[in-house]
Amino acid sequence: MRRLWAVCRKELLCTFASPVFYIVAAVNLILFGVFFYVIVSASREAHLRYVFHNISVVLLFTSPMLTMRLFAEERKLGTFELLMTSPLTLLELVLGKLLGAALTFAILLALTVDFPILLLSFGRPDWGPLLTGYLGLFLMGLAFLAAGMFASSLTDNQVVAVVIGFGIALLLFIISWFSPQVGGPVGDFLEGMSISGRFENFARGVLDTGDVIFCLSLTGIFTFLTVRSLDWRRW
């Protein structure tokens, strides 16, 4: 656990020392702010359901940017071999890096705290959907981060890592679009695999254990695949 935390701390220090995070965060906050301002001033209702939907789309692009350097940069800088020969186990290394990315993402989400505060000062928001919406964004982001981390473990090129990470996240997001064409049990399966469909429940204020387990399972699977990928490449 101590070693895992050490990896996480190192990741956080690297992230906050790099201008990339501040640029990504500022651009994201401007986009989130535009969604908030436009949607709330048009609907004049004290909720963030549709703001959350728009933010979830932006996360498709943001998540791989937060994870692109996790392993690709280590390889490019030649520090990957150092890590592989360190006393760290692969699982500790992967979980430490994921935790670092997850905390960075949580900070990014926390920087939208002004939205509920503004709603509270102007109206009477319903707290249930606000809390589940943020929880849904975090869990969906976590799954995207794990997918992005897996993509980063496959290559030493950060741009390629972003493209692969974005591709996986996008596929998880739109997979239900094929459901009506396919129909039947396969269509139902595709519907169930859609992370955007799962997020819908969170955004409207419904907490379902199936949705929580789905997001955590995706995170778990991509973490496992990252470990396998690194293990494979080590040899």
Binding site: D126, W127, G128, P129, L131, T132, G192, N201, R204, G205, V206, L207, D208, T209, G210, D211, I213, F214, S217
Partner: peptide
């Protein structure tokens, strides 16, 4: 996931 989705527990947190 198939099982936990089919037999999930859910709560509606809207007021």
């Amino acid at each position: 996931n198939v099982i936990t989705t089919r037999h999930s527990w859910r709560t509606d947190l809207t007021s």
